[in-house]
Amino acid sequence: MKIILTQEVSGLGAPGDIVEVKDGYGRNYLMPQGFAIRWTKGAERQVEVIKRARSAREIRDLGHANEVKAQIEGLNVSLSVRAGDGGRLFGSVTPAEIVDAVKKAGGPVLDRRRLELPGHIKSVGSYPVRVKLHPDVAAKFDLNVVKAK
């Protein structure tokens, strides 16, 4: 079965890639989860739109990845959240909130799917966060979770 990926699937490809998979895998997993669409001539034209959008936010090369890494590692990222007594959060910190905090701190716009968290962040404190920018480059920064006033 020929499909077009709409999201990154590890071991298979990136958004916009046209891949050949077994019928059951495509029909029962990839398409219902929204990871892929069936390949048609019209859908292949949409691939160009997907690829243009991906290239706009993608790290261009190793040199660009190292520049972004230096920029991220120099940031002081702080996230103000609602917390109860004892520093316990109401809920947990999401990757989307971390991406917004990096942007507010003056950093680049990151893809939330590339963040690697040390588990669920459910209390105030400092947490190490890793961002996979390129297959060879990963940036690390400390996220300071503080109680909102």
Rank of each mutant, 00 (worst) to 15 (best):
G24K: 06
K104P: 07
I98Y: 04
V109I: 15
I37T: 15
P118G: 00
V146H: 01
V49R: 15
S92M: 03
K41M: 12
A56S: 14
G87V: 09
I98E: 01
R114Y: 06
P15Y: 10
L117A: 01
D23C: 07
A53F: 05
E67Q: 15
D100I: 03
L12I: 10
I59Y: 01
K149F: 03
D61E: 11
Y29A: 10
A139Y: 01
T40N: 13
R112A: 11
G24I: 00
G26M: 07
G42M: 14
L30Q: 06
L62W: 01
K51W: 04
P135S: 10
L110D: 01
T40R: 11
G125K: 01
Q7V: 15
T6M: 15
L117S: 00
R60L: 13
A14S: 15
F35R: 11
Y29Q: 11
R112C: 06
M31I: 15
G16W: 02
P108H: 10
M31V: 15
G24E: 08
V9Y: 06
A96Q: 14
I4L: 14
G13L: 08
V21P: 02
A101V: 02
S126G: 00
P108S: 05
H120T: 09
D17R: 04
P128M: 10
V19N: 02
L115W: 04
L117P: 05
A101M: 07
A56Y: 12
A56C: 08
H120A: 06
K22M: 09
E44K: 14
V19A: 05
K103I: 03
V131L: 07
G125C: 04
M31N: 09
A83V: 06
K132Y: 07
A101S: 09
R54T: 13
A65C: 10
L75Y: 03
Y25E: 11
A148Q: 14
K149H: 07
Y127P: 00
V93H: 02
K132D: 14
L110N: 04
A105P: 11
V109M: 15
T94S: 08
Q71E: 13
A101P: 05
S10G: 11
A65T: 09
R54D: 14
R114L: 13
D17H: 08
I18D: 04
A65G: 08
G16H: 08
R82D: 05
P135E: 13
V77Q: 00
L62H: 10
R112F: 08
R113N: 14
R88K: 13
P128F: 09
S78W: 01
W39D: 11
V137K: 07
G125N: 02
A70F: 00
D100T: 13
K140I: 09
V47L: 08
M1I: 12
A43N: 15
D85Y: 10
D85L: 09
K140W: 09
F141N: 01
R60M: 11
R112L: 08
L75T: 05
S10W: 08
I72F: 01
K2C: 10
F141K: 04
K147N: 02
V146L: 08
G119H: 02
